[in-house]
Amino acid sequence: MSETRPLHRSPRDYLVAEAPDEPVLFLSPEVLQASARRFCEGFPGMVTYAVKANPAEAVLLNLMAAGVAGFDVASPAEIALVRSLSPEAALHYHNPVRSRSEIAMGVAAGVASWSVDQPGEWRKLDGALPPGAEVAVRFKLAVSGAAYDFGEKFGATEAEAVALLAQVAGAGFRPALTFHPGTQCADPEAWAAYIEAAGRIAGAAGVRLARLNVGGGFPSHRMRGEVPPLDAIFARIGAAVREVFGEEAPTLVCEPGRALVAEAVSLALRVKSLRGMGEVYLNDGIYGALAEQPLMGMTDRIRVMAPDGRARAGAARDRLVWGPTCDSLDRLPGKLPLPCDMAEGDYLLIDGMGAYSTATVTRFNGYGGLRLATVRALNEPSGTGHHRPCA
């Protein structure tokens, strides 16, 4: 991924001036830092960033500038990346499956918090961590409200969590609990259910929690008519912790990824060809920055712009949209309502694309090269469109 100097105020200005033929990710540091401040000021505890969502150095540095001092890291590479930018940052290694060499590397890097969800993984940590390290037992529930459930891969049952938590406390480590309600979870009651379960687990284990990590899963703005209820989620978390734990409430920490970075990036893709019955072929697809769309469903936050900056505003027409590779699976889900007056060489601007758009690029067929441009604004109107009925 190449990066350009911050010369342009908006994606429209950049596209008109540069006429790029490869995909471009537009990063707004102002939007990113505003998202970070909203979490730091609204969440009733420590905010750590899940590096996996977008590990770009520009993203990490802007989050640090906005006050994010902790990072959820899932691998030695992510640990090394954060340490190269901030020797003092708090590192939470909450991928609960690690090799012994990965544990040793984390200890050497000063990881502050570890998670565990299974006796075999606990045995790897016990004896390897320094005295007083925080160990958070990760548990799972059958709770709905997310786009997909992380509990299928990680997490102990409540009964298993009780036993693990008692072992952690008995070994002299700082006892904590952690959970993840699932990706793009918009229901505040999902967090309340997990917090109630945390109270049951701590009570059954006879352990006073030092900290409760309420995970990630906070929703980003994916669809035009669905504004993420972050303030309601923050308030419900705070209220639930007070209701369940009272004066013995543990300190809180969260680990958002998507909700911190998604809104700060827009993706520009070029129309390579219009074929057949209006099918659209783009210069990127599911093997590139759009890898998540078949899993999450296609966002409708899409604008179409002519090369001269005019917004395409013709009547919407449902179209099949294909990526650039030779694989017939490289197709966006469903049909997208796109302007009937769009043409070869136009740009599709997709908003809210800061999460997982760069982290999962494969470079299959030689595609997936992404240009990164820094701009101040992302949502400037793309000029005045002309209206032309579909034939």
Rank of each mutant, 00 (worst) to 15 (best):
S2A: 07
E3F: 06
T4W: 14
H8L: 12
S10P: 07
D13Q: 14
L15I: 02
P23I: 14
L25C: 12
L27R: 09
Q33N: 13
R37K: 15
C40V: 15
C40F: 01
F43Y: 15
G45N: 08
G45L: 13
M46Q: 11
V47C: 02
T48P: 00
A50F: 00
V51L: 10
P55T: 10
E57K: 06
A65V: 02
G67M: 09
G70Q: 08
S75N: 10
A77F: 14
E78C: 06
I79A: 03
I79L: 03
L81M: 04
V82T: 04
L85K: 05
S86T: 07
H92R: 11
H92C: 07
S101T: 07
G110M: 05
A112D: 07
W114H: 06
G120K: 09
A128E: 02
A136W: 08
V137M: 10
F139P: 08
K140G: 04
V168F: 03
L177T: 06
P188H: 02
Y194A: 13
A197E: 09
N213Q: 08
G217S: 05
R224T: 07
G225C: 00
E226D: 12
P228L: 00
R242M: 08
F245D: 10
G246N: 10
T251F: 12
S266V: 02
L282M: 11
Y287S: 05
M296E: 10
M298V: 11
D300N: 15
R303H: 13
R303Q: 14
V304T: 04
R317F: 03
G323F: 09
P324G: 10
K335V: 05
L336P: 01
P337Y: 09
L338G: 01
D341I: 13
D341F: 14
E344T: 09
E344I: 05
L349T: 00
D351V: 00
A355M: 09
Y356H: 14
R363V: 02
R376S: 13
E380V: 15
P381C: 01
G383N: 08
A391H: 04
